[in-house]
């Protein structure tokens, strides 16, 4: 990234090849929207180019990239997401659960439970569980202390467990 910042824009291709899959998976797990996730990957790399002068080489590139990713996602979701009440979300999720239970009940419930998590909890869970980031990096991305990251991750898993139990109970 240092070379990109210094003007060798071709080197962004190396960063793209190294990180775009993980970035796409981050967006897909957070939004469950494939087309939106592909757009967001594009948007992140455009912003990296556009704001390359603000990169601080003393910090990890991945942390900076995920900070940009969060901002891009927030911008998109504010624009696209209609207001939906939790009850409506739960009813909608339950109906979709019916469609996929025959395939793999447990995984389907878990996926729906993830979708129903509040955005902040889902985000910290995805960052810690799937993105192979150190807690120090997650702290940098979220702008909080490492201790606070640990608390948030546990609370997110607990909330996920509650939703999972609720969905499983509704299905039983």
């Amino acid at each position: 990234m240092r070379q990109v910042k210094d003007g060798d824009l071709r080197k962004l291709a190396v960063l793209f090849e190294r990180h775009h899959r993980a970035l796409f998976h981050f967006f897909l797990r957070c939004t469950s929207d494939r087309a939106l996730s592909e757009d967001l990957v594009q948007e992140v790399y455009f912003r990296i180019l556009r704001y390359r002068h603000t990169f601080n080489p003393q910090h990890a590139f991945t942390a900076w990239m995920y900070q940009i990713a969060r901002n891009a996602q927030m911008d998109q979701l504010q624009k696209r997401r209609p207001e939906v009440t939790p009850d409506e979300e739960m009813a909608s999720a339950s109906s979709r659960v019916d469609d996929v239970l025959s395939r793999d009940q447990e995984v389907a419930l878990l996926r729906r439970a993830m979708e129903l998590l509040p955005e902040d909890k889902r985000e910290v869970l995805v960052l810690s569980r799937y993105q192979e980031l150190k807690y120090e990096e997650i702290a940098q991305i979220l702008g909080i202390e490492v201790g606070a990251v640990k608390v948030r991750v546990f609370r997110a898993v607990r909330a996920l467990g509650d939703l999972y139990t609720e969905l499983a109970g509704a299905k039983a």
């Binding site: 775009h20 897909l28 592909e38 990957v41 878990l110």
Partner: peptide, 21 residues
């Protein structure tokens, strides 16, 4: 539950992502 999160599949990005980039 934490371990089972590994079983939740995720799709790969389409080829258009690379082309567009």
């Amino acid at each position: 539950l934490w371990a089972n999160l590994d079983r939740v599949p995720v799709e790969a990005p389409g080829p258009a992502v690379r082309t567009r980039f």
